[in-house]
């Protein structure tokens, strides 16, 4: 097989994988938004993140793809599933929340946002997106990312660590147990307890 034919066969293969991943991405994204049960939404988010990892691989971002699977599918979704299981099942009809004008207005606002993005990108970069670039073989590999992070973008790396530390401290404080009962009880909880006591008395 000549190199040209091999390159075109590879191109077709990449296109097929891309289209499959794109459809999976769009489908699971819509599923996340429209499932009434939060548990199913979180499960579809795993599919969305997985197909996005395939996208990153096709876009020569191997390290970002690996980090996507590890950080999102490995940590974030597990945290979501734990909290959903902790909070318990609660169903909600996604398209029949408040008044109809609110739902329609929300859909129109999201559509306007999408159109705005497309118009802005098209006006700003429409002409320059058509040329093709060849990236080097090491583009996106972990070693390359590591060199970039610790040489050119060291400040971003350090600030990321501080952000994560602050978020961890905040999560611990928010999730820590407060004293039950006593004077520092939030007013609504006190009301609920009073109601419960009245019911018992009745």
């Amino acid at each position: 097989m000549t190199p040209v034919l091999a390159a075109s066969a590879g191109n077709v293969l990449v296109w097929i994988v891309w289209v499959v991943a794109a459809f999976a991405c769009v489908g699971t994204g819509i599923a996340v938004v429209s499932f009434s049960n939060a548990f199913y939404s979180a499960l579809s988010l795993i599919g969305n993140l997985g197909s996005l990892a395939v996208m990153y691989l096709l876009a020569t971002a191997e390290f970002v793809a690996a980090a996507q699977v590890l950080v999102y599918a490995g940590a974030v979704v597990v945290m979501f599933l734990f909290v959903i299981a902790y909070v318990g099942p609660r169903r909600e009809v996604p398209w029949a929340g408040g008044p109809a004008w609110q739902t329609i207005g929300a859909a129109v606002a999201a559509g306007a946002l999408l159109v705005e993005i497309i118009v802005a990108v098209g006006l700003k970069a429409g002409g320059s997106l058509s040329h093709t670039d060849h990236v080097g073989g090491s583009f996106g590999t972990p070693g390359w990312i590591g060199r970039l992070f610790l040489a050119d973008h060291l400040l971003a790396f350090e600030i990321t660590s501080i952000v994560l530390l602050v978020a961890a401290v905040g999560g611990v404080i928010l999730g820590s147990h407060t004293k039950r009962g006593g004077p520092d009880l939030p007013p609504r909880l006190a009301e609920t307890q009073r109601e419960a006591e009245t019911e018992v008395a009745v």
Partner: peptide, 16 residues
């Protein structure tokens, strides 16, 4: 991005 924005706007469960 548009799909996510739609979800943020129409859903009322903070988890979703």
């Amino acid at each position: 991005f548009g799909t996510g924005a739609l979800g943020v706007l129409i859903r009322r469960n903070p988890l979703i």
